[in-house]
Nucleic acid binder design. Structure first.
Lengths: 261, 261
DNA sequence: TAGTGGTCTAGACCACTTC
DNA sequence: AAGTGGTCTAGACCACTAA
């Protein structure tokens, strides 16, 4: 008759029990879970089955395992809130006074403990890049790839694309290993007479590729948020196309806008 | 000396091969993968190992399995792009002319084939809701929970919370099973003298809970995007707090804004 | 009914961490 | 050296799907 729910398989039941302990606060973040062999014995199953239970919890992002050490209730990172403010002019616009960096230290807590690698090269534009920058597919564009790290752990990648004519000869596409130009890309573009004015961001979420999981050191069960950003001048000219891949658990994006007619 | 990468375990190698076939287009979306027994025989491993390989691909969201039928390369749904336009006044504002619904059919393709359930009840406000609506935690609020379906498959949930004083006696909190009020919640609030003017949306991504996975019929390896929305009047008064859980693969969120000073 | 994925036991070996 | 998770083989049974 009815599709009665069968009794859950043992691996499921073990996972359910542990999950209940976690969400009830009986197992706090960072706590070590019982060893596989102990779990197996307690439930009268093989280690394989207990391992499968842990696998389920890992896929849900509730548990992380450290090979040779144990399985732990996952700890949540401090979450960074990303709003339009992060692009605010006062954060990147260098005034005639050069003391900018020291001036602003206290209002830039988001850069605290932050580092980034940088890798600049000339590549062929793919579909998205070409459309965004108004070029033909395959045209040469400058690619500026960064890996942003916080407190020693990578949080996201950000790869920007520029029309060569816009940035040729600027510190932005200098191969030097340091952060290219104080104030970053927006400052450089402004000096080129291309002041950023409007931003369009497209957000989507998915599971990481294996490469992304390695690069961002993502635990099993952590999705990524992919952000595609087009920056335009007041004229509407696209001056930068950027693609970021973020560890989902470390960010929340916030947008405020008026309801259109 | 160096940490040379060991040879990958068999399950990993099988997954890598299949993944390569998929991304190279040799296995198109919807294609049935070789049976577990065939894979196992081909690679000289047990069915368990071949099964594990499929599990890896499932977790990446590349493959879905249908019990008793087979494993298939995952097909992508049509993606709906969500911009501020979806809240535009012309979509919900009912003018004095009642012929609105017929009028606008052609410009509302997003509602095509769409259905939603609705469940209204009076509940105690949790932390987020209370803060957003300016109430005490535990105060009574109207909860209006919806499950939105498209082409027969659920795409997201949306649960709105209202101050009882704002919506008492309106069709919005009528327990009737139909969609409450043509034009939806915004129209009703406007009629109450609380016209929505500004929206703040907070987006984050994570893996679904087991309940969400069931409700939204999510395949293994599909993350969800959680959207928390606060709607305010021109005065800045919060009139609705809503929380949505979206199947990540079905949406992309788009925001355009001017760079602040 | 035949084919398919899902799960399990029993036992083994390996890789990594910790002390 | 002891403890831990990761993976594998070999074989079995079950549940679901499709013809």
């Amino acid at each position: 008759m009815s599709k009665e729910p069968r009794t859950s398989p043992p691996s499921r039941r073990i996972a359910d029990d542990l999950r209940a302990d976690i969400s009830a606060g009986r197992l706090l973040p960072g706590t070590k879970l019982p060893a596989l062999r102990d779990l197996a014995e307690r439930y009268g199953v093989t280690r394989n089955t207990a391992n499968k239970a842990l696998g389920l919890l890992q896929a849900e992002g509730l548990v992380v395992t450290r090979h040779g050490s144990g399985a732990y209730v996952r700890e949540s990172h401090p979450i960074r809130r990303l709003g339009p403010d992060r692009y605010a002019r006062h954060r990147w616009q260098v005034t005639t006074v050069t003391a900018h960096a020291c001036d602003r230290l206290d209002i830039e807590p988001t850069q605290q403990q932050g580092h980034q690698t940088q890798d600049v090269s000339l590549v062929a534009a793919d579909d998205h890049t070409a459309v965004a920058l108004g070029l033909d597919v395959g045209a040469s564009v400058y690619e500026r790839a960064r890996l942003i790290t916080r407190d020693g752990a990578p949080t996201h990648t950000m790869t920007s694309y520029y029309r060569p004519a816009d940035v040729e000869g600027t510190p932005l596409v200098d191969q030097s290993p340091g952060i290219a130009g104080r104030g970053g890309g927006f400052q450089v573009l402004t000096e080129q007479g291309l002041e950023p004015h409007e931003i369009t961001e497209d957000l989507s979420a998915r599971m990481p590729t294996t490469e992304e999981a390695l690069l961002l050191e993502l635990p099993t069960g952590e999705p990524v948020v992919e952000v595609r950003r087009v920056t335009r001048t007041a004229d509407g000219q696209a001056i930068e196309y950027a693609r970021g891949v973020h560890a989902a658990s470390r960010f929340v994006w916030s947008y405020t806008y008026d309801i259109p007619d």
